[in-house]
Simulated scan of single mutants.
Amino acid sequence: MSMPVKVLIVDDSSFFRNRIADLLEGDARIKVVGTAANGREAIEQVKLQRPDVVTMDVEMPEMNGIDALRTIMQQSPVHVIMLSSLTHEGARISMQALEAGAADCIPKDLRQWMGSSSDIQSQLREQVVALGKSQRPRTFNGSSSLERNRSPLRRTERKDAPLASDPGAALAALRQRAEAANTATRRPEVSHRVSSGAKVPDCKVVVIGSSTGGPAALQKILTRLPAAFPYPIMLVQHMPSTFTPVFAERLNQQCNINVKEAEDGDRMVAGTAYLAPGGKQLIIDPKQSDRLKVMPGDERLTYKPSVDVSYASAAKSFGDKVLAVILTGMGSDGTDGARLLKRSGATVWAQDENSSTIYGMPKSVIEANLADSVLDLDEIGTLLSRRGER
């Protein structure tokens, strides 16, 4: 049996320290090696205990979580999960934490932590284990704000078979088809394809999916794109609904391209990235292929937004004229959608293990033999940036 993941819990509330410890110690894969009541204690405990993962409250006396995080990432880099309130200010601080190197931010909602089980509690356990098994993080330096320009829409109408209006039913049908396709059309195993021959295809849309570690990865890619980037971009990041407007706003301040939280009926414009709202699903309108639809989250789907749903929609609307990118994150969201994209002739890129915070979603796509190229995060940004340089 592998060694348990070592965790340090940092919170000024003894209730939350004990609650998180009880929750994590109930999992045999995890060992709590210490606690701290403020940021200064956290810095010392990280040096002393050498944990694999730290859970960190944002608001604490003596030294807050953000300042402690910055010091830890400079002195003793470790995976840090921040706990933040579900308020606009909490969301803004969460973005600062992600830019300072936090692996992820989890809402600190007392109601979700009081019960015996909840999605947030399960998410924390699985994230701790996944982060603990991954390589130690590298510090991340956010990009400074850049000049922003607008680029005109390059629009081409296309009539394709529409995606079902029910994303849950569409995904269930997709998985059934995928099982049959796997049996009938399984290709021989090949080595992971690398970037030597990778190039951005002539496409109608770029769709990027990500989860844990995704905000930093998206920032690194999108801040490199020129204002004249010739395609619209759909962004599907697993993130609470309170956080997505602030994340989109922050990216928009940093990027040459425009970035916004997607709204139902948005017209897709070249040089603009549309972030799926938390708790909703983002698809291309099956009746108007240049417009987006924001749909209610479906309880049958684990992820809201779901990369699978957005990938499936792009496959239906644009077929082989899609570039799909799957980035860091836990689980396998995106694999079923990537399978449908490949059947439609689209191009799929997957982030490599070395540059991923958690090598779950990209690994799943790669192991299903669906990735055309396996790329370092820097390579993805470089290749995309060249498309807007004329």
Rank of each mutant, 00 (worst) to 15 (best):
V80Q: 05
F247P: 10
R187G: 01
T335Q: 05
S364L: 03
N149M: 13
D336E: 11
P152R: 12
Y303E: 07
G168N: 07
P188E: 07
W113V: 10
M295F: 06
D11H: 08
S364R: 08
V53I: 09
G39K: 07
D333T: 04
S310D: 01
L327K: 02
S85N: 05
R154G: 13
N149H: 14
R177V: 10
G271W: 06
L8I: 12
I72D: 04
Y359I: 00
G360I: 08
Q127K: 15
L275V: 15
E263R: 13
R224V: 08
G329C: 05
V246F: 08
G388F: 06
S134Q: 09
D104T: 01
A130Q: 10
I20F: 04
D202C: 02
Q75W: 02
A350I: 03
I66W: 00
N149F: 15
A100V: 02
D266P: 13
D67I: 03
I284Q: 10
E25L: 04
T185G: 02
A315I: 08
C105I: 01
R19V: 06
V78T: 14
S317W: 00
R186M: 14
S84P: 05
V194L: 14
S289M: 13
Q49P: 00
Y311N: 06
T55Q: 01
E126L: 14
I20P: 02
E367F: 03
Q123T: 13
D333H: 00
P277T: 07
N141I: 05
S364F: 03
T212C: 05
A21M: 09
R148C: 12
K260N: 05
A198V: 06
E189C: 06
S122K: 14
V54W: 07
T272E: 14
T156P: 02
S385V: 08
A262T: 09
E389M: 15
G90Q: 07
I120M: 12
V32M: 07
V129W: 13
S289H: 12
P296V: 13
